[in-house]
Each structure stands twice: as structure tokens, then as C-alpha cells.
Simulated scan of single mutants.
Amino acid sequence: MNGTLRVGLVGWGAIGRAVGTALTEHRIPGAELVCVVDNRPLGDAAPAPQVSFDEALERCDLIVEAAGQGVVREWGERVLASGTDLLIASTGALTDEELSERLRAAGPGRVYFTGGAVGGLDLLQAVRSLGPLDEVRLTTTKLPGTLEQPWMDEELLSRLRSATGPVEVMCGTAREVPVKFPKSTNVAASVALAVGDLDAVRVRVVADPGAHHTRHVVEASGAHGSYRFDVAHLPDPANPATSQVVPHAVLRSLAALAGRTGQIL
């Protein structure tokens, strides 16, 4: 692309701070942080002006969502309709197929998704062109405290809090699980995006008090081959529900969009 990519960042949490700091330090050549959107007054905490969403659309070529699924639902289509591109970190929002279809159809802005804490999505997307996969399984293992949710009953909460080893918290499809764990299971939606079928991806969520690393194991098989990706990340100290690597996945996506050569696409 020509010129500098003007980036607006939505969310100044664990992911947003890491992304915004890297942009401010010019670690992504060709990309510049021009504003931050957050529902809290940030004062001098942010290295770029804090503005309204409407003003961000006027200033930016690209909006980076780092604030949760609600932002994607509320603002996604409007961003794209304004002609601004959108990079989504909270892919769990795309378990709403109607929203997913509307975002893909919206424009003239373009929508992109970052792979976040799991690898192999590019390969699964390529394999999908050969034909459907017969089986896709994801097992996500995290610390119990990061998985507690308001909908859980006392029996399940007690099992989580008293666990001395792995405890299965939920088993379902990539359509069902991210809705129940909106801050912890974007990986399930990302895998489903790669294979093109929310219902084809079976997901197990496991709580383990010994899980010093957040672990995602993807297993897929079909007529053309079998695939297994096993990743283990340190949780982010500021937000243990996400992995330390997630903002760096966002930055890798930004580097590709800014035109950095040598990228694996």
C-alpha cells in the first residue's frame, strides 16, 4: 500500500496496551497509531488521543478491535460501511452467523481476522479447498479462575474451585462454546472460521489448576490428510484469560496489512 496505515485502536486493556505501545515505538514500519477508543477516561495513559468512535472513523484507515465481542456486534458493520478496514481480535463474535454474513457483505471497508493464540489456521483454510474435513477437535485447557462464568451453578463452581487436577467444564461445538466463554474461547471461533463450519468443530474446555500455560490442541482429519497443532502459551499477567502471544498475533496481522515484505501469508 502507499503511504502510512493510520490505525485506530479500540480497547486499552492487556491486548490494546501491547499493540498500542508497539505502534507508538514504530515497531511496525508503515503503520501509525493515530487514536484510541475506550469507554473509560484514559488521561495520559494512552500514547495517542482518546476519541469517540465516530471521530476514529474519520481519522483512520484501519480499526483494530481489542475490546471484546460486543464491539464487533455494535460497531463492525458501521466501521466497514464508512470505508474503514476492520481487524477483529474477538473472533468469538462470529459464532453469530447472521453477523458474520453481514460483516463479510459490508463495505467498502474490508474485514480481517487475527489468528490469536492458535497456529495452523492458514493450513486448515488451504485444506478446506480440497474438500470438507471429516473431524475437527479443539481442546482448550486454562486455569480454573479464568473460566468462571455467571451462568455456572454452585456445583460446577465448587468443582472448579476445589479441583486438584483437570476438570472438563464444557463440551460442545464452536457455535455453542464461545457464547458461554466470551473472553476465553475465541480460538474455537477462529478454528471454525478456518474450516468454514461452526458445527463441525467439537470443543472441550478443561480447567486445570496446574495449567501454568494455556494450551490449545487442534486435531483435524479428512480424505486428504490429518493435522495436529499443539500450542502452550503463558497467560498474560494483566489478563490471565488471554495468552501473552495474542497482541503479537495482532501486530503480525498489522505488519502484513501495512505491507511489510517477507511475511508468511
Rank of each mutant, 00 (worst) to 15 (best):
A81T: 15
A81W: 02
A81R: 15
S82Y: 03
G83F: 03
G83R: 06
G83K: 02
G83V: 03
G83T: 05
T84V: 15
T84C: 13
D85S: 11
D85C: 05
L86S: 05
L87E: 05
L87V: 11
L87A: 04
I88E: 12
I88G: 08
I88A: 13
A89R: 03
A89Y: 00
A89H: 09
S90D: 04
S90K: 11
S90I: 02
T91Q: 15
T91K: 09
G92K: 04
G92Y: 00
A93E: 03
A93G: 04
A93N: 06
A93H: 06
A93Y: 06
A93R: 03
A93V: 09
L94T: 04
L94Y: 03
T95R: 14
T95D: 05
D96R: 01
D96L: 04
D96A: 03
E97M: 08
E97H: 14
E97Y: 02
L99W: 02
S100G: 08
S100I: 02
E101M: 08
R102K: 13
L103K: 10
L103H: 01
R104L: 12
R104Y: 09
R104N: 12
R104W: 12
A105V: 11
A106Q: 11
A106N: 05
A106M: 01
A106R: 04
G107P: 01
G107S: 11
G109Q: 10
G109C: 06
G109S: 13
R110D: 11
R110E: 15
V111L: 03
V111I: 12
Y112Q: 11
Y112W: 14
Y112V: 06
F113D: 00
F113T: 01
F113H: 06
T114Y: 09
T114S: 15
T114M: 15
T114I: 15
T114K: 13
T114L: 07
T114E: 14
T114N: 12
G115K: 14
G115L: 07
G115W: 01
G116A: 11
G116P: 05
A117P: 10
A117Y: 09
A117W: 08
V118T: 15
G119E: 12
G120Y: 10
G120D: 10
G120F: 06
L121N: 13
L121H: 03
